[in-house]
Each structure stands twice: as structure tokens, then as C-alpha cells.
């Protein structure tokens, strides 16, 4: 992570003004807090004296990837008008949480369960063994098209400063399947590095060359999964664009064979 200074001041100010204008959107870096309940624990984080609810512990199938004590998190979320409280925190929805890579031993707060903080819903997966399935079942993939095949672009999403994780296969597998199905002759991979305007007015950018690193990694992963026939064109966009989490991405453009 890199913090912009003078060179990015104007960008930062503009972003800060934008953040103020849209006061429902928040982006902040803080320690995560875990609060136990009689079911699964929930995750919180504090910003400017307000506790925010991020989500609960479920399992590998959830979109929400809970934070980690021992690390700060970048929280990007929206507070709805009249948002409810869960676990004592104001609900951010949608919310994107990125665990920052550097160790932060000061982030070590685990709050014990209290009756007043029971979850207002049943957890999709209890803390014990599963109920025979994962907490969330993804919809079945759409049927693969018939020839003539169109070019298609698949997007891999990332945490801030992140590369491949356990969540990457859900993005990579459809691209792999399609490329195989259409006997791709060329795969164009473009990786992007991004930045975030924090609610404090500061702008933080992902680490240097991350766009290139992401693109090269995705190419290696697809080739490692056996997709070695197509021609690969790999490039990174390493000048960070400031904005929403969706900017942190790799685009995989698949050009079908003849």
C-alpha cells in the first residue's frame, strides 16, 4: 500500500469532497473487532467513534471474507438511511473488506458474547459441523454457448493489495471452462492496480506493479490448469485509478478459435 502525498493532493481533495458529498459511502482503515454470540461470531470495525457491522463467520462459500485479528482492514461500504444495528454495529451493506498484508498486533480485540447482541437471523452455517452442505450454494453455471462463439471477457476481482486467494477459482473457473469450450486461440489478460479515496480524505494506492503482477499470475494459473494452447497477451495497467473496489481487477478476454 502506498499513500499519495503532494503529487496526488488534488486527486485526494477531490475524492474527499466526493466522499463528503456522498456521506453514505465510507472507506476507512481500522482494526477489525470480533464479537462472539451464542451462535457464530460477528465482525465489527470502528471509525470515528462509530462501530460498524461487517458480517458474520460462515464458511468458504460466502462472499463475505471475514477479517483477521492481527491485521488492519480496509473497509469500503455503504450505510443505508435508517440502517439497523447488528452485534452493536451499524450495518454496512454492501461492504467490501480487505485484510491488509502487514502485521498489526495491536488489532486484537475479541469481545465475549452478551445476550443483547444476539444475531437477528439464523446463521447459514452454525459453528459446528455443516448441515450437509456449504452455507451458500452458487447458482449453476449458464449453459455453454453453441458455435459460432463470441469473444467474451471475464473479470477477476481482488481485495485491496491482493493477488490470488481461495476466492479466485470462482472467477477463474468459468474463464477456463469457456476457453476450453471454444478452443480459444488467444487470451488477452489485463491486470489493473487501483487506489481508494478514504473517508479521511487520504488516498491509498495498491503496491507498485500490482496490475502487472496480477495479470502475469492469472496467465500462470490458467496455463498451470492446462490451458497452454492459446496465445497469451499479458499486460498490466500500473497507474492506479481511484474509485470503487471493482477497479481492482483482471480482465480475461477470450478469443475463440476458428
Amino acid at each position: 500500500m502506498r499513500t499519495f502525498s503532494l503529487a496526488a493532493l488534488s486527486v485526494a481533495l477531490a475524492a474527499a469532497q466526493a466522499a463528503q458529498a456522498s456521506e453514505q459511502n465510507l472507506a476507512f482503515i481500522s482494526c477489525p473487532i470480533v464479537r462472539d454470540t451464542s451462535s457464530v461470531p460477528c465482525w465489527l470495525s470502528e471509525f470515528r467513534g462509530q462501530l460498524y457491522y461487517l458480517g458474520i463467520q460462515t464458511d468458504v462459500s460466502a462472499d463475505f471474507n471475514p477479517p483477521s485479528l492481527g491485521h488492519k482492514v480496509l473497509v469500503e461500504g455503504t450505510v443505508a438511511a435508517g440502517a439497523e444495528e447488528i452485534c452493536g454495529g451499524l450495518v454496512l451493506d454492501p461492504v467490501k473488506v480487505s485484510v491488509l498484508p502487514e502485521l498489526a498486533p495491536e488489532c486484537n480485540t475479541l469481545l465475549m458474547a452478551e445476550d443483547r447482541y444476539e444475531l437477528p437471523f439464523e446463521a447459514p452455517r452454525p459453528p459446528g459441523p455443516s448441515a450437509g452442505r456449504l452455507a451458500f450454494t452458487p447458482p449453476p453455471p449458464p449453459p455453454l454457448p453453441e458455435a459460432p462463439f463470441p469473444e467474451r471477457t471475464f473479470v477477476v476481482a481482488y481485495d485491496f493489495d491482493g493477488t490470488v486467494t481461495f476466492q479466485s477459482p470462482r472467477f477463474l473457473t468459468p474463464a477456463l471452462d469457456y476457453a476450453r469450450h471454444v478452443r480459444a486461440r488467444r487470451i488477452e489478460i489485463t491486470g489493473y492496480r487501483a487506489a481508494v479515496a478514504l473517508s479521511t480524505g487520504e488516498v491509498v494506492a495498491e503496491r507498485e506493479r500490482l496490475g502487472t503482477i496480477r495479470a502475469e499470475q492469472v496467465a500462470r494459473l490458467l496455463q498451470g490448469a492446462g490451458l497452454t494452447e492459446p496465445e497469451y497477451i499479458v499486460r498490466g495497467v500500473d497507474r492506479p485509478q481511484t474509485g470503487t473496489p471493482e477497479l481492482r481487477r483482471v480482465e480475461i478476454r477470450i478469443i475463440p478459435g476458428e
Partner: peptide, 29 residues
């Protein structure tokens, strides 16, 4: 083995795969 929960913490490729760190689970997790 199945139901005694405890806090599983700082275990690579367990706490990093969507469960959070720590995660309150059991041996059977």
C-alpha cells in the same frame, strides 16, 4: 470431536479461507 467449539487462530490455509481469524469451530471443521 463434533461439537466442542473453540477459537481456531492463526492457522494458515484455514483462517485464510473465508472463516476469519479467529474462527469459532470444532475439531470436525
Amino acid at each position: 470431536f463434533h461439537f466442542r467449539t473453540f477459537w481456531i487462530r492463526d492457522s494458515m490455509h484455514l483462517n485464510t479461507v473465508g472463516l476469519g481469524n479467529p474462527t469459532k469451530r470444532t475439531c470436525a471443521t
